[in-house]
């Protein structure tokens, strides 16, 4: 018998392996393939990471680019969280703040993050600051919306329970609202971080020197398709790891929640 976990891992690997096989069979040995075969991408990825294969401008630069992107993703994300969390709690709990800010925020929300890019470039200039701003904006709304939802949808019964147990009105926020809203807030953070990874590439495609988005774009102009694909693979992996980290944190923090624990 294969254990449940082993089986799950085996099953989850089936599709990627099948895809790799298909990719290999349809590209390897073809003289005029637009897409390089997986082994060549693998070699390129090795060279990007450690060098020693091509020894060109890109060799062993992966860490630098990855760090630049990771820094922007987490920087923008943390700034978004630092703003969206308190703002969401205020909008959710204080009627005055809600009437003051909610309509405006709802009006701005349908504007796609990417549509802000030209304006960001005008304001912040061509460079990493635009990318940073885009990440911030991409992460901001999911966190805000879920925080507002979380603090607004606390079961009324819990307020009654707290009141009859002697919780003072001023303590209700910390003792009831915040913990009750935590699963929602957490969902918002997770979505926001995922979105930050989506947006970073777009942000870095506009004249930024470093970053995974930047080398992807540059490599395309030089027809280095292996680098383009290598960059995509690394972004995928980093996004996946970053999400796994957040989820692990959530499982620890939200053990009590049947949806998370």
């Amino acid at each position: 018998m294969i254990s449940g976990r082993g089986r799950a891992i085996g099953l989850s690997l089936a599709a990627p392996l099948l895809f790799l096989a298909f990719w290999h069979l349809s590209t390897a040995g073809q003289p005029f393939s637009l897409i390089p075969p997986p082994l060549e991408v693998g070699r390129q990825l090795w060279d990007l990471t450690f060098g020693g294969v091509w020894d060109d401008l890109y060799s062993a630069t992966l860490l630098e680019h990855a760090l630049a992107s990771v820094g922007r993703v987490y920087g923008g994300f943390l700034l978004a969280a630092a703003l969206a969390l308190p703002l969401g709690m205020l909008i959710g709990r204080v009627a005055l703040v809600r009437s003051l800010l909610d309509p405006t925020l709802q009006l701005l929300r349908p504007i796609p993050v990417t549509a802000w890019l030209p304006l960001a470039m005008i304001v912040f200039g061509i460079g990493p600051r635009s990318a940073f701003f885009l990440v911030f904006l991409g992460a901001f709304y999911p966190i805000l919306v879920n925080t507002v939802f979380g603090v607004r949808s606390v079961e009324g019964r819990l307020f009654e329970a707290a009141a009859m147990l002697g919780v003072s009105p001023s303590a209700v926020f910390w003792k009831v609202v915040l913990p009750a809203a935590l699963p929602s807030i957490f969902t918002g953070l997770r979505l926001g971080l995922g979105f930050a990874w989506v947006v970073i590439v777009v942000g870095e495609m506009t004249g930024v020197q470093t970053g995974l988005g930047a080398i992807i774009m540059e490599a395309r102009q030089l027809s280095r398709t292996e680098i383009v694909i290598s960059g995509m693979v690394v972004i995928g992996l980093l996004g996946f790891l970053s999400d796994a980290l957040v989820q692990a944190l959530g499982r620890r923090l939200l053990r009590w929640s049947p949806q998370h624990g």
């Binding site: 019964r157 009654e160 329970a161 009859m164 009831v176 913990p179 009590w256 929640s257």
Partner: peptide, 27 residues
């Protein structure tokens, strides 16, 4: 509402994020 009058609700009204012990010690 006040702690001198405790209420037991039909739908329990327990705090889902607290363990049994912490729910009991909440007040």
């Amino acid at each position: 509402p006040g702690p001198d009058r405790g209420m037991v609700f039909q739908d329990y009204g327990l705090f889902p994020w607290l363990s049994v012990a912490r729910n009991v010690g909440f007040g």
